[in-house]
C-alpha cells in the first residue's frame, strides 16, 4: 500500500517535471541553453523503480521536450533501483547529486549528455521546491528568473499532448 502511494506520488511529480521542463524552456534562458545543447531528437527516460512510474521525453526544437509514449529504448535512461529511492528524490528529500552519491539510480547511456539533464533537473528543483528544501538538497541554489508561483501556474495550464 505504501509502495502504491509512493508510486502515485512519483507519477504526479513526473507530470509536474515534464511541464516544468517545458515552462522553463520558454522562461529561463539557462534551461533553454542546456536543452538546446542536447542532440537533436535525444530521448530520455526516468524509471521510478521496478514496475514504477516512468516518463520518457524527446528533445524538441519548439517546446524543449515532448513526451514519448511507450518508449522501449531511449538514448539515456535513469533507472531508480527502487520506488522508495525515486520517491526520496521526487519528493524533495534528496537532491539529484546526492541520489547519485547514494547509488539510488543506475544510468544507461552517455554520461556526458546526462550531466546537462541533471543541471536542468536542479533548476527545476529550485523552482518547484520551497526555499528551505532547495537549500537542503542543492549544493547551490540557482537564482530564479521568475517566481515559483508563476512556474506552477504556467505548468498547470501547460498542454503536453
Amino acid at each position: 500500500m505504501k509502495n502504491e502511494m509512493m508510486n502515485q506520488m512519483n507519477r504526479l511529480v513526473l507530470a509536474v517535471l515534464l511541464r516544468g521542463l517545458r515552462v522553463l524552456y520558454r522562461s529561463d534562458d539557462r534551461v533553454r541553453a542546456e536543452m538546446d545543447s542536447w542532440r537533436k531528437g535525444l530521448t530520455l527516460k526516468l524509471v521510478c523503480g521496478p514496475g514504477g512510474a516512468a516518463l520518457a521525453v524527446r528533445q524538441d526544437d519548439a517546446c524543449g521536450v515532448v513526451q514519448v509514449r511507450r518508449a522501449q529504448r531511449t538514448d539515456i535512461t535513469m533507472r531508480f533501483k527502487s520506488v522508495s529511492g525515486a520517491f526520496q528524490v521526487l519528493s524533495g528529500q534528496v537532491g539529484i547529486s546526492d541520489a547519485y552519491a547514494r547509488h539510488l539510480f543506475a544510468l544507461e547511456g552517455d554520461i556526458y549528455q546526462t550531466m546537462s539533464f541533471v543541471r536542468c533537473v536542479e533548476y527545476i528543483e529550485a523552482y518547484l521546491f520551497p526555499g528551505f528544501m532547495a537549500r537542503r538538497i542543492l549544493r547551490e541554489v540557482p537564482e530564479k528568473k521568475l517566481s515559483s508561483l508563476r512556474v506552477y501556474a504556467l505548468a498547470a495550464v501547460e498542454r503536453v499532448r
Binding site: A101, M115, R139
Partner: peptide
Amino acid sequence: NDGAVIVNPRQ
C-alpha cells in the same frame, strides 16, 4: 559534462 562534476562537494 564530465561525470565527476555531479559528486564534487561544491556546485
